[in-house]
Simulated assay, not measured.
Amino acid sequence: MDTTIDLSLAHRPDLSDRRVVIVGGTGSVGEGVVRAWLAAGAEAIVPSRTQGRVDQFTGVLGEAATDKLHFVVGDYTSFDAAQELAEQIEAECGPVTDVVASIGGWWMGKNLWEISQAEWDRYFVGLTTAHVAQVRAWIPRLPEHGSYQLILGGSATQPVPGSSIINMEQAALLMMRQVLSAEAGDQRRVTAAVLGPVKTRLRHWVESEWVSADEVGLLTTGVAADPTASATDYELSTTAQMIAQLRGLGVYPQEGGEAK
């Protein structure tokens, strides 16, 4: 069984008719998502809360930052702010077909019974509110052929002692995906990628079996291009799992062959 991924062999879908909003796109995992959608020909819009972050991220992308990449500076973490930003994006860029929500944060260090109100508010209330704000702002706007994709961590399903708030927050978001799919039915496509540790530009130490940010990005383009990809939680803790999912979506060659 293959255990390494050669992205030069990827069969990237043609998403030149798509316009995606990548929330959290300037993050270390979001960076790979942005690169993948631009490589697929899509128009990518990345919200950011500061211009400084935009300038830094543009430098990181280098030549990958094509004229199809747009930034919108503003808050998106509250219900009202997310609605206003969605209206601004539609007014400036046009209708959006897809959303990838890669909003994250990490916290670790205490038992659940030792956490403070401030820690709870920041890492559970704050992060879940930001996600729900995107759902409220974008789900009603997306076309049926579009997709709403959540990027989550393995802490959604695996308990991590000392990181109880993040465990609970990620588990809540995983259930949010399931509820959204049940409520939307055939009218909206909602999926989640549940990741283990991810190889990113900022990690100084990685394991060979970890998936990479660029592979996560390729997966999101494959989900967008496959109209049957819906109401699914993609478990992606290892490269072997990633290969299986990419092959299932037709964006990576079958073993000993070509992409379907």
Rank of each mutant, 00 (worst) to 15 (best):
E87F: 09
R201H: 11
G153C: 03
G154A: 08
R12L: 07
K260W: 06
G25R: 12
A244F: 00
L218M: 12
T191Y: 05
L69P: 08
M176H: 05
I89L: 05
G248P: 00
G217L: 03
T220I: 00
S208F: 10
V216P: 01
E258S: 15
V72F: 06
L174D: 01
E87H: 12
L173W: 01
Q245E: 12
Q170L: 09
Q170M: 14
A65L: 11
Q187G: 06
Q187Y: 09
V216N: 00
I45D: 01
T128A: 08
N167A: 12
A171I: 04
G62K: 08
G248R: 03
Q88C: 06
T66R: 10
V223D: 03
E63Y: 12
G105F: 14
V160R: 15
V29D: 01
A225Q: 07
W210E: 07
G52H: 10
Q51P: 04
T239Y: 06
S102E: 02
G126K: 07
V73P: 02
D121M: 09
H204G: 14
A40N: 09
R18S: 05
K110F: 05
N111C: 11
L180F: 02
G154K: 13
S237F: 13
L180Y: 04
L38E: 08
S164Y: 15
A39L: 07
V54I: 01
M242P: 02
I22A: 04
G257W: 10
R188M: 08
L202Q: 08
I165G: 07
I5C: 11
I45N: 01
L236I: 10
Q149D: 00
T66P: 04
V29T: 13
G185D: 05
R35K: 14
